[in-house]
């Protein structure tokens, strides 16, 4: 299934809890303030390194750009997608769970 997280990992435990329920096949997309989870060299990116290394972690590009995070600097393995990519993830990996 596709999980989305929209809160900063420094603000809530949504990202950590989501990662705990990702299983072996789940996908994670970070959106809105959730994109701070993709900042490289942080505790959050250490936590998501496993699934990111397997190509199962995504971040929404426009939300990165809006927050001044260069898409080229996100943590290793995290893939940047646009809105069309978001839609495609829902199509490919539904059902969708929003960790709000």
């Amino acid at each position: 299934m596709l999980h989305t997280v929209n809160k900063s990992p420094l603000q809530t435990n949504d990202l950590a809890s989501c990662l705990g329920h990702l299983g072996t096949d789940g996908r994670l997309l970070m959106i809105e303030d959730g994109v701070y989870g993709a900042l490289s060299g942080t505790e959050a990116t250490r936590q998501l390194a496993g699934p990111a290394g397997e190509g199962r972690v995504y971040v929404l590009g426009p939300d990165l750009e809006a927050r001044g995070v260069d898409a080229g600097t996100v943590a290793d393995g995290v893939q940047v997608v646009d809105y069309a990519g978001f839609v495609q993830l829902v199509v490919d990996h539904g059902p969708h769970q929003a960790w709000v």
Binding site: G20, H21, D25, G26, Q97
Partner: peptide, 18 residues
């Protein structure tokens, strides 16, 4: 347990989070 919860979630047609 958490692993079982993850399975249950993935097994749904629709998940609504609050």
């Amino acid at each position: 347990d958490r692993a079982r919860m993850a399975e249950l979630m993935a097994d749904q047609d629709v998940v609504m989070s609050f």
